[in-house]
Write a protein that binds this DNA or RNA. Sequence first.
DNA 1: TAGGCCTGGTCTAGATTTTAGACCAGGAAG
DNA 2: CTTCCTGGTCTAAAATCTAGACCAGGCCTA
Lengths: 145, 145
Amino acid sequence: MTGLRANNLRPAHECLAQRFQSWSSGEFDLGLCPVRGILDRLGDKWTTLIVIVLAQRPHRFSEIRRSIPDISKRMLTQTLRDLERDGMITRRVFPTKPPSVEYGLTELGESLLEPLAQLVTWAEKSQPKIATARSAFDAAEASRG
Amino acid sequence: MTGLRANNLRPAHECLAQRFQSWSSGEFDLGLCPVRGILDRLGDKWTTLIVIVLAQRPHRFSEIRRSIPDISKRMLTQTLRDLERDGMITRRVFPTKPPSVEYGLTELGESLLEPLAQLVTWAEKSQPKIATARSAFDAAEASRG
DNA sequence: TAGGCCTGGTCTAGATTTTAGACCAGGAAG
DNA sequence: CTTCCTGGTCTAAAATCTAGACCAGGCCTA
């Protein structure tokens, strides 16, 4: 027993630990961490969904709304603006009869697809386990009163 | 020109497209998609941060709060409960003088670390590009009045 | 010429979510 | 007897999100 147990089995721990320690080490605190800002944005409830929709092909405003029926116009506009500001998508206006606007991923936006796909894969794979855990938790809670 | 261009360069597109299509194909709509529910949870602003903190080692309630100074007690309690319900973390109470509670990742929680680490790596790598894009966007907007 | 519909939004009011911080029980230390 | 520690709960106010009315402007129908 050296204090190092199964160290070689935990590369993700190592990676995150390293990052976290550099984030919280003296010079800047988590509250100001730019990576955290980016993660917050990705967690925006609509952001990832829009990126996934645009991953198929460029879409027009109303097309996105049809793909994601429960987003409000306001949030769609705002999320698209934020994504555009962050350089993740482009916005192109076409002078058609009723003017149309097309949104598409930039190279930066496309580079997000790989990590995002991994997360989606994880979510899909873990979904049954999570559902089981939820049922168990709820049942235990109910039986406790 | 067959209509298939650089198809082998876009595995993430393929993966996401496949998923998205199966989500939105007839039988269930995006609004009910369980994967989306999971992604929403991960985007909870605090969830990923807490998972990253617990990736180092198990932590006590107040320890987590010290690691993430700007989370309120209420949200910390709530997020921890949600994570526990989803089977991502365990909660163990020790009958010490002032009772202490330790939170740690389950196997399921640990399995999230890999995709999460990839996302964090992406965020870290992309952060300069995003910062540049933001400045450019803001400058363009300001110059337009 | 009026009316309706399409586009991509903006705006407002109400609902929901998050925050800050007071409060609590119970044991220890001074 | 007061103060501090633990891990929370609760409430009121602030921030955010939703639903849906509204808008300009061009087209179609009659």
